[in-house]
Design a protein around this nucleic acid. Structure first.
Length: 702
DNA sequence: GGTGACCATCTTTTT
DNA sequence: GATGGTCACC
């Protein structure tokens, strides 16, 4: 009882209302840092406490990491039972449900999930077989086609409409593109394949067409909560509506100012539609910010104030004082890297743990230079976003074999696997596949494939390996055996850098360790890929103290003591691809808003004035318009003083007790005493007395 | 038909 | 830096 009292007392009135409203539809508009996660966590705890079986609560989050973190926190409040709460992403839930109910629309429980790369491969295959890739034609490439198809599904628009608006130069190919789209859908169905969009689409269809499933699901999940609702699309909203049809107990939480996934069909207006979808919705607004200091919040508010459309009000905080955001004008990218590394070293000196520092950027490749610098300085970091382990070609090779074991009709994977053999090219692979296709057991049929001498040996080795793998059940052992088989192929195909790639295979193996079930392993690889990028996937580093480098998209929902936003220049942020339309630009602005609201105490905004742009080489980079439009009283320019100059200046000018000074970290202070060995004791407002090195402290006289 | 070497191209963000 | 396309050669 005491525990319950105490946790409810920690909430403000709005949060409390959200936690206490258990029945009926609720929409929570939660500004950045307004204790949204805490509210969800407490509500889960509250439901469990009221006697709702945890597995009847469904918590839909943007990543599974987010779900796990929330359930962990709920467990701290109320004990282990909270971990049994059902949770995950829309995609993983749909996947799970389709394994159970997919039969109703003709899918075996062993269907294969295509990630983006797989989908592109399939499209490419069909594109050539339809004769659409003859040379001399400017027919769209596989990645464009995949993006196009995905948009059509996620935004619920026709191909013609999207082409007309966004790819007018391809409009002449509309009939062919439409044919390819149909062909792609047929191909997936025929081979028991689903891409990301199909997971949602098919689950939606099951719900729509089978009222008995809807009823069952409503009983199974009596309470539904959705986080980051501003980043859902119409299809996801529909899924929620249908799943909750029996009871209407749905709480969605979101912030329209943080909507950053329009490019994949998310629509922040979904938030406003919610009350229409669920009549009688209670709306609760969380506007008090518990995260950032006032100067950071002032800047954030200024960013979002310029947004064309916004629905939430200004955030306020009770954390006055603190250091103004600092803007740094770097000569070039390496100067920017040096600057960031130096500040990080200083912060560490001041006692800020590395895990409390993050560097954020618009696109994954913006941090390449910094990564080198951090490595030179021996500063440990983990990078999120960008090329993931699972996307590396050699990992996909290995995984394709596993997919075949699970779904022998996955001829897309067959294609990939066969191409690896020496002496087998696209034509031969297709010929072999035609043979396999005729059989009801393609794996078995492999041994009877008529083979030419040039590749007979390789084919036989593949056959034997697959046969052997079929008899093993442990995921880890299977993978070990498979890597044994694959290693010689790896060395032949990637002869330039195979040792590096071999290490990735080891990482994959260590991931497999946790799994008993192959289908689970493969599904997780596709739906919840390990977030960190290639090559730093050591489980040990997870616990170590390290800096986070992350794309802003991957940093959503997280916070740090100090945040650096780098490469804030035109063409990079906002991205050159996003300046064409007002809407895209608005999304870039919200992205910037998300970036700055990640910071609690310290915020650095960096922009190199020269750098490389694709195609043009080294050019002058203009500061990002998002920086330029900020009122100058909201930030301070970092004044770089070379260490030697600073020392001379300090020595010659000579600080005296009573002098007023300013320090970038601690703000305004008064000199108390000048100590030997270039040290100085200063009293800072709000920070107390500090002893600083004149050599390192960048003091300014006031 | 397959391979390997050379060239150009273009790099957003994610389930 | 990786991918795609083209070409010469086996």
């Amino acid at each position: 009882m005491g525990r319950r009292r105490s946790y409810l007392e920690e909430l403000n009135p709005a949060q409390l209302e959200a936690v206490r409203t258990l029945f009926g539809p609720v929409l929570v508009i939660a500004g950045a840092g307004s204790g949204k996660t805490r509210t969800l966590v407490y509500r889960v705890a509250r439901l469990v406490e009221e006697g709702v079986p945890p597995e009847r609560i469904l918590l839909l989050t943007f990543t599974r990491k987010a779900a796990r973190e929330m359930l962990r926190r709920a467990s701290l409040l109320l004990g282990r039972s909270c971990e049994r709460v059902s949770g995950g992403t829309f995609h993983s839930l749909s996947h799970q449900m389709l394994r159970e109910y997919g039969r109703l629309i003709g899918f075996s429980p062993n269907f294969t999930v295509l990630d983006r790369g797989d989908a592109e491969d399939a499209i490419n295959l069909l594109r050539s077989s339809l004769g659409l890739s003859e040379k001399g034609r400017r027919f769209p490439k596989k990645d464009t086609l995949a993006a196009l198809f995905s948009k059509a599904v996620n935004q619920g628009r026709t191909l013609a409409k999207i082409l007309e608006r966004e790819y007018p130069h391809f409009f002449e190919y509309l009939p062919e593109i439409e044919r390819l789209f149909l062909e792609y859908q047929r191909y997936k169905r025929e081979h028991q394949l689903m891409d990301y969009d199909d997971l949602l689409l098919h689950w939606h269809r099951v719900l729509l067409e089978h009222s008995e499933v809807r009823a069952e699901i409503s009983r199974r999940f009596e309470f539904i909560m959705v986080d980051e609702y501003q980043d859902t699309n119409w299809l996801q909203a529909e899924i929620v509506r249908l799943m909750a049809e029996g009871h209407g107990n749905v709480m969605v939480v979101g912030d329209d100012s943080q909507s950053i996934y329009a490019f994949r069909g998310a629509n922040f207006r979904n938030i406003l539609e919610f009350p229409r979808l669920f009549p009688g919705t209670r709306i609760i607004k969380l506007e008090e910010n518990y995260r950032s200091t006032q100067p950071i919040l002032d800047l954030a508010n200024a960013v979002i104030e310029r947004a064309r459309e916004k629905y939430t009000k200004c955030l306020f905080t009770r954390r006055p004082g603190g250091q103004k955001p600092i803007r740094y004008r770097a000569r070039d990218e390496s100067d920017q890297s040096r600057f960031v590394a130096e500040r990080i070293l200083e912060l560490r000196e001041e006692g800020v743990p590395l895990s409390e520092i993050a560097v954020l950027f618009r696109a994954a490749f913006h941090s390449f230079d910094l990564e080198l610098e951090l490595a030179r300085q021996d500063l440990p970091f983990v990078k999120y976003g960008g090329l993931k382990l699972i996307e590396a070609a050699h990992i996909k090779d290995v995984v394709a074999h596993l997919k075949i074991l699970l779904n022998p009709f996955d001829f897309l994977s067959w294609h990939r696997v066969l191409l690896l053999l020496e002496g087998v090219g696209p034509r031969t692979a297709e010929k072999i596949i035609t043979h396999l296709r005729a059989s009801s057991d393609p794996l078995r049929a492999l041994s009877s494939v008529p083979a030419r001498p040039s590749y007979e040996k390789g084919l036989r080795r593949l056959t034997q390996t697959l046969e052997a793998l079929r008899r093993i059940s442990s995921v880890e052992e299977r993978l070990e055996e498979l890597i044994e088989y694959y290693r010689p192929l790896l060395e032949r195909i990637y002869h330039d850098d195979y040792p590096k790639r071999e290490r990735d295979l080891e990482s994959l193996l260590s991931l497999a360790h946790r799994y008993q079930d192959l289908s689970e392993f493969l599904a997780d690889l596709a739906l919840e890929p390990p977030e960190s990028a290639v090559a730093d996937l050591e489980p040990e580093t997870e616990k170590e103290d390290h800096i986070v480098l992350s794309t802003i998209h991957s940093a959503k929902g997280l916070e740090w003591h100090t945040v650096f936003v780098i490469s804030l220049c035109e063409g990079r942020f906002p991205s050159a691809y996003a300046v064409a339309s007002e809407e895209e630009l608005e999304e870039e602005r919200r992205l910037f808003y998300v970036a700055v609201t990640r910071a609690r105490e310290g915020l650095y905004l960096c922009h190199p004035v020269t750098g490389y742009l694709p195609g043009e080489g080294r050019v002058i980079l203009k500061p990002s318009r998002f920086l330029e439009e900020l009122p100058s009283e909201l930030w301070e320019e970092w004044r770089e003083i070379p260490a030697e100059e600073a020392r001379e200046e300090a020595a010659s000018a000579g600080f005296r007790p009573g002098d007023l000074v300013w320090h970038p970290q601690f703000g305004e202070g008064e000199v108390r005493e000048v100590l030997p060995a270039e040290k100085i004791r200063i009293y800072f407002l709000g920070h107390g007395e500090k002893t600083l090195h004149l050599k390192f402290a960048r003091l300014e006289r006031l």
